[in-house]
């Protein structure tokens, strides 16, 4: 059974159809890359998978381990292991990152019927993950993403992913805003999570990221559809020739 199966998905936002019958199958252990021009619907797809309100699904379905994902609340999806690293992470003033991490982690564990982490165990775990991602603990005492630089916000997303250990990681342009060293560290973080029980979907504009996180499949999205799928060499092709030749296909 695939981990994620998107079948003929049609999505509208404010009366306008953005996804016009998109299909995608992701199996455990695989890494998929989704590329495509601005506005082609990549973030929309990731939002719909995570259950963001405001999108109207007018057709198709999404199955997660065979279950109807669209019938679940966003927090249920999260507890099931769907993680979305946002293209634009929000700021939450007054709530320290540490408090947020602990609250979220324990909420997920509780929903899965696991015991909650005790504070010392939790701290140890965070410290370890933060160290591996070169994130200073001081940053975690500040409000969630408040006053973080663009790159710091992205790193905070990767930190959460590493901490929550989700089974499906969707990374929406995690490379934008990261400097070259941070990119390598973040990619290492993602690679460390690669396992036969997990899948990763990376949304990116740049082939460079795929040198670090080597995909098994590359999909090209254009105007709300997947117009071409292939192996990692497809990304190199795109880098050389651009998206223009896919426009007709869409």
């Amino acid at each position: 059974m695939p981990l994620l199966e998107v079948r003929n998905l049609q999505v509208r936002v404010e009366e306008r159809e953005i996804l016009h019958g998109l299909s995608l199958v992701v199996n455990k252990g695989e890494v998929h890359a989704i590329m495509g021009p601005n506005g082609s619907g990549k973030s929309t797809l990731s939002h719909v998978i995570a259950g963001k309100p405001g999108y109207e699904v007018t057709g198709g379905e999404i199955l997660f381990e065979g279950e109807d994902l669209l019938a679940m609340s966003p927090e249920e999806r999260s507890a099931k292991g769907v993680f979305l690293a946002f293209q634009y992470p929000v700021e939450i003033p007054g709530v320290t990152t540490m408090t947020f991490l602990r609250t979220a982690l324990n909420a997920q564990r509780k929903a899965r019927g696991q015991t909650e982490f005790l504070v010392p165990d939790f701290l140890r775990k965070v410290r370890k993950v933060a160290d591996s991602l070169n994130i200073p603990m001081d940053m975690l005492k500040r409000g969630v993403n408040v006053g973080f630089s663009g790159g710091e916000k992205k790193r905070n997303e990767i930190l959460q992913m590493a901490l929550f250990e989700p089974s499906l990681c969707i990374l929406d342009e995690m490379d934008s805003g990261l400097d070259i060293d941070a990119l390598r560290v973040a990619a290492d973080g993602v690679n460390a999570l690669r396992s036969p029980d997990r899948a990763v979907v990376v949304i990116t504009h740049y082939q460079r990221l795929l040198n670090y996180i080597v995909p098994d499949f590359v999909h090209v999205m254009s105007k709300g559809r997947v117009v071409k799928s292939g192996g990692k060499e497809l990304a190199l092709e795109l880098e050389a020739s651009g998206y223009a030749r896919f426009d007709d296909a869409a």
Partner: peptide, 30 residues
């Protein structure tokens, strides 16, 4: 409370109610 902030929280596993509680406590922290 920003819808985006609430969604961010529930994506990370919090329920609506917990998310509101968290954001409100942040709001009054000072």
């Amino acid at each position: 409370i920003s819808e985006d902030v609430l969604f961010y929280c529930v994506q990370r596993g919090l329920s609506q109610e917990e998310a509101v509680g968290l954001v409100v406590n942040g709001f009054v922290k000072d």
